[in-house]
Design a protein around this nucleic acid. Sequence first.
DNA 1: AGCACGCCGACT
DNA 2: GTCGGCGTGCTC
Length: 841
Amino acid sequence: LHFRHKISNIKIMKQFKKYSEVALPVPIDQTFTYGIPEEFADSLKIGVRVLVPFGVRKLTGYVVHISDISCIQEIKPIADVLDSEPVISAELLRVAQWIAEYYLCPLGEAIKAMLPRGMNIESKINISLKQEVRIIQSALTRINSKNQKAILHALIEENTLSLQELRKRTQISSLSFAISSLEKSGIVNKEIVMLKQVTKPKLEKWLRLSARLLQQNALAASIDELKKKAPRQAACLNIVAEKREIAQSELLKMNGVSTSCIRALLNNNLIVQFDREHVRSYYDEFPPEAPHLIALNHDQKKALAQTSAAITNGFFTTFLLYGVTGSGKTQVYIEALKETLTKNKTAIVLVPEISLTPQTVSRFRANFPGLVAVLHSRMSIGERYDSWRKLKDGSYKIAIGPRSAIFAPLNNVGLIVVDEEHEASYKQTDNVPYYHARDVAVVRGKLNEAVVILGSATPSIESYYNVKIHKYHLLQLPQRIDNIPMPNVRIMTMIQNKRQTLKGDPRIFSSPLRDKIEEKLKRKEQIILLQNRRGYSAYIKCHDCDYIEKCENCDITLTYHKTTHRLRCHYCNYIKRAPEVCPKCNSGDIIFQGIGTQRVESELSKLFPDARVIRMDLDTTAQKKSHDRILRKFGQQKYDVLLGTQMIAKGHDFDRVTLVGVISADTALFLPDFRASERTFQLLTQVAGRAGRKNIQGEVIIQTLSPDNFGIICCQSHDFMKFFNHEITQRHELSYPPFSRLIQVLVKGEDESQVKTVISDFRAALPDQESLYQILGPVPAPISKIQNNYRWHFILKVNKKSDPTGMVVNDILRDAERKILKNIRKKSYKIIINVDPASLL
DNA sequence: AGCACGCCGACT
DNA sequence: GTCGGCGTGCTC
């Protein structure tokens, strides 16, 4: 490991016995040296959290290195050591180091991303009133300063506020001057306080018999005695005796037991109380199903034989398990997991957030009772912390979860499974580090000499290319299990300008799709309809003057939601009433363009008033468990039609679905993104895979305006290979990934001219090196404004051959960024460097 | 990021 | 003389 330093002079310092290199979760690309106080000098380990002074604040940092000397002059000591054992293993530290280097983020940020939330302690500055409100109010009349008045008004309401909260409430940018004036006049108090660690093991009170009663006959004697005067206590004592140990909360639930009763027994030293950890577990409410014993078919056995061999040998190998929808990939994972556990190793299973349903979890839990920990963002901080700790101490052997589960604190990882490896949700886009969990999985696998299985029915172009160049090994499951035939896919060409008739809107339901729905409803079979756009219509447009309503804060058309009769921005959640007449020309002829799920729903209820339809999109799954609930109800056949956005395409196997309809396959096709075609192929193939049941061929109808699109054609023939070959030549011609590495440099801010200056300065700071990279832009990003922030970007197409690890270009980018941050004033903009962006919007 | 400090113009 | 806004620099 090496660490970035700013070396001021080369003079070896020796104020402390030992020095530690501390990574901090701040956007500064270096580590900081702290002295280790004598008391910790021998016990401090790499990987523990420490509390360190940082300017006036205190922050939680991570010890990444320990040495005897230092060449930094003024060194502060570590304020406190927060762990006795490392929270981050040497192996995970190396993963963090790779992430920091490859995705261009500070090491501290990478480490922070690996730990469950709530493990960071920070100081905050609290401002409080020093005197009574009455006195303050009289003082207010004497104060002329606008800012001071605003601060006092806020404080009268709350008494104590942190500096940050105060800034939010008063909207004053530079508070410090006003606060120091108030401090001088003795009106307010300023103090630095520590925030508590949010997550701790949850302790529960348990009860057992006192040692005295364990002696012969003592118990019976006590009970007899109590029966006379305190029968309830006697009964209570009896229960404790029977159970030996019982949680107090459990005991209290029983008949006739009260707190006073327990207190009396405790006071008389008949029972004793002790603390026991209560492990919080989100999925406990879903009991595991019994494992159904499934005999593997020929293909599954073949795939398993190869993974088993690799697991047994303990060599790093990455497999791409390409298995068509319903081919039984999960069973292969489970068998591989069994193999891994018998080798006394641990495993991680990554699943897209949306597929992490109770059913998925139960399936794994059933096969490995008591060994599976779930890590899920919908779990509370406490639940996640408990899973995390039990993985760390080795009581759980398998971690299952979405993206961040790749950081599960397991030792001796032998297998990493990435299910649906093509899923874009594996790429983190909202926070640093902008990592791709599938790629981290491969890195972590390599560090552990582990086996990595990437599974998909529609592999990403990148992964399949890696098979071609022999980086990954291909495993194939070309047949569906249980003799379910591949569905029959029909493509319906839609015509844009047909007018609505009595038989409904032909732009939503073509007559073949309408007929099929009718047929299936009659036969009591289930139907899935995909329309990958929520709301009612994508935008509303004035028929006379072509005016389109756009968001005030974003460069986005507003989506019409009929249920609330509102226009909504899907980027910033800006909401306004839908106009009755055109705001520009007052025409009443407003037309709804672009079909959303709500529109399909209302059309469906017009055409088939008796059909029971359930809609699933972001708007109907806002609640914590509504997603699971909708799928469960549909599975129990309480509905005939499941209608929704892409989230319906995975997560469940419904064996009564015989028809899948795609209302419009075009929603993603025209996005200015080089993956648009790939996305479309994947989504269509995934949703088509929902159709069909044992011995009955499912039917799929895809409606589209562009029937010539290659993704759609290949979906019809279930021909991934054909799609891949076509797509890979295109990527090659345009030198897009996997033939290059893309890096997006995006600047956003409220002042567009400033954003433009920064992005072009950044561009200019990059030396022209034709052989190393090509630069496209800077240009405004396709979505040029989000939440009043203008967005400009340029794209680096890095030549993989001249920079295979990416470190050459990354160093250049780091230097350029440092230069930019130094030279340009104002910080009202943000620079985002996104390595391997999932999309370029 | 988040904080303090210092400069400068405005205002009493 | 203050106050308030804004830019700059620093964090071991």
